[in-house]
Design a protein around this nucleic acid. Sequence first.
DNA 1: TCTGGGGTCCTGAGCCGG
DNA 2: TCTGCCGGCTCAGGACCC
Length: 431
Amino acid sequence: MGRSADLPRSMDVPRASCTADRDCHVLHVDMDAFYASVEVRERPELIGRPVVVAGGSNPAGDRGVVLSASYQARAFGVRSAMPVAHARRLCPQAEFIPPHFPRYAEVSRGVMALFREVTPLVEPLSLDEAFLDVAGSLRRLGMGPAGIGEWIRGQVYDAHRVTCSVGVGPSKFIAKLASGLSKPDGLLVVPADGVLEFLHPLPLSALWGVGERTAQALRKLGCTTVADVAIAPLPALRRALGVVCAQHLHDLANGRDERRVVPDMPEKSVGAEETFAHDVVDRAVLRRELLRLVERCTAAMRGRDLRGRRIALKIRYPDFTTVSRSRTLAYPTDSAHRVFAVATELLDSNLPRGTAVRLLGVRVELLVRGVAGEQLTLDGDSVSACWPDVERAADAARSRFGSAAVRLATLLESPADRGETQSPESGNQIG
DNA sequence: TCTGGGGTCCTGAGCCGG
DNA sequence: TCTGCCGGCTCAGGACCC
């Protein structure tokens, strides 16, 4: 983008306030209603209107949830993770849009690149937020952390036409809380000597790692605010929450957070899952869906040069109970063929015949980076041995000719798809 | 209200080998 | 040789986050 020339100089950037940002070297930047904002940017006629980006397998139906809602939609009570049916009832006049992840990823890449012009210490948390450690950039940029935060907000809007909020604090935890409280389109600095004053009146849910269950356990101990957790006896917290969780929350509540901003956090797992539009009983359909998920998952792994050793299958039943089963291999793999074989065994040995399934998922864990040769099996299965090469060739063809260029024959649904007519669009097939 | 899809981290049970 | 202990690993599941 060649934006380096736009980096701020001390004379032309408003020195955002304060001396209070001394010792506050961590920035948390969070895009405001990111997916919805990108959609509005693409369709200016939606400016000022309630917009809801809703995903799931069946966005038009009742099984999806809200991924992002514009602030106009939030005024009607629409929130992230809310079932679409509920959101429609609250705000029927909203524009409901299916997600366009490649579009969001592209904007995200641009925004992250902008952050890296400020500091190499950028730790993305998701497509729409990141931590930045700017301690090493202050002198070069000639401004304080708050000034850098304001500069970033201006640059993000100028370059991408979406707004973001910035929290500035002495630690990741405080910076993240501050960005949340400054939303939308704002900036909040929490000075190092004002951390406890800022933190203690907040509710339990402000603590990173406290959801409904943990909050319930804390309330049983008489805690209703962060201050209560800060003074709660550690042994009681340990009994209620476990050693690690107790120590973690006690530290946060007392303003202690030593976690550094770490760029390039290694990925731990890659997966794909899908909730069906209707519960599925048919074994053949389940296998085909499983293969589709395995394809998606392993293609993502190959694209990122990752292999994994543990294969985990997730099954959710119509009553929402969820089970997971996994198996660890002797050697890491990125082969759809291999992963599918294991996932199918897990499915067959754990799902009683005739049971309906709401969601199926597959995940590969214990990841390693690098393309070492696939470990050959001792059974001399030369067909299995050549699968990794076949799959890489298919990946290359897809990246050159489009995702439909090569598909597994098992995944083709109609006779035309399977090449039983002379359709010129028919992809090449394997399997 | 009725619950997606991508993840991470933690806990506890069971197994195995030294 | 047997037993108990301990650490490491695997597996399943829960909680949480965005």
